[in-house]
Amino acid sequence: MSKAKFRVWRGDAGEGELVDYTVEVNEGEVVLDVLHRLQATQTPDLAVRWNCKAGKCGSCSMEINGRPRLACMTRMSTLDQSEPIAVTPLRTFPVIRDLVCDVSYNYVKARQIPSFTPDPSVKPGEFRMQQEDVQRSQEFRRCIECYLCQNVCHVIRDHEENKEAFSGPRFLMRVAELEMHPADTADRRLAAQEDYGLGYCNITKCCTEVCPEHIKITDNALIPMKERVATRKYDPLVWLGSKIGRRPADTPKVPNT
C-alpha cells in the first residue's frame, strides 16, 4: 500500500477547479479503483461515469495527466506517483458534473449517417460473402464508443465551431465501414466529404494513438476514405470517365432515424 496525490477536476457547467487529494493506492489497482476509494472515503459526491471496469463499455473515458484514457484500463503502476496525477473530464465535450461529460454530440452525429443499405432485390439469406470481404469492417466493429478519438481530435477539441461540419473519427470510421461492406449498395463518398467533414481531418493520427481497442482508425478507415473521396471528387481522369460511362448514385442525404 502507498499514498498517491491526485488533482481531480471538480465542478459543473464549466465552472470548477482542480482539487488536491491524497489517497491510498494498492498494488494492481487502476485509476478507477482509486477514484472509487476517493468517493468512499473523502468525497462521496464525486461524479464519475463507469460501468464494466473491463475496458469494454467505454463509459469511464477521462483525461489522466492530460492524456485521454479509460480510467479502468490505466494501471496506477504505469503513472509517475512522485508527482500529483491530474484527472480531468474530456475536454471536447461539455461537463455535466466533475468527470462526467455530456457526449450527446456523438449521438447526433451517429444519427446523421444513413444506415446499412442492402440491395432490396436480394432477399435475406441470399447474399453470400467470404471472410476476406468483411474483415476490414470487422476491425471497425471493435469500437466500444468510448469517444476518446472524438475527444482527442484537434479539429473539434480546439475548434468548437467545427462541430457542426465535422463528425469526428468515430463516425467517419462508421462511414468507411459501410463503404467497404460488400453488401452495402449506397455510395457515401460525397457525403463523407460534404456532410461529415472528412476534409477537416489532417491525418495526424491522434485518434489511432488513443484508441483502447487499437483500431487503426487513420490507416484503415480515414485514409482509405480520403482516397475514395479523391476518386469521387478530385480525380480529373475519373471525372472524365464518369462523363463517358455510368456512375452509381450517391446516398440520399436523409437522417438515419
Binding site: 464549466g14 465552472e15 480531468t88 473530464p89 475536454r91 461537463v95 468548437e160
Partner: peptide, 16 residues
Amino acid sequence: PRLERAEIGARTLRTD
C-alpha cells in the same frame, strides 16, 4: 442547464 466545457487554462496537462 447550459453546459460548458471544463475551464482548464493550461495548454495541456501532459507530463511526458
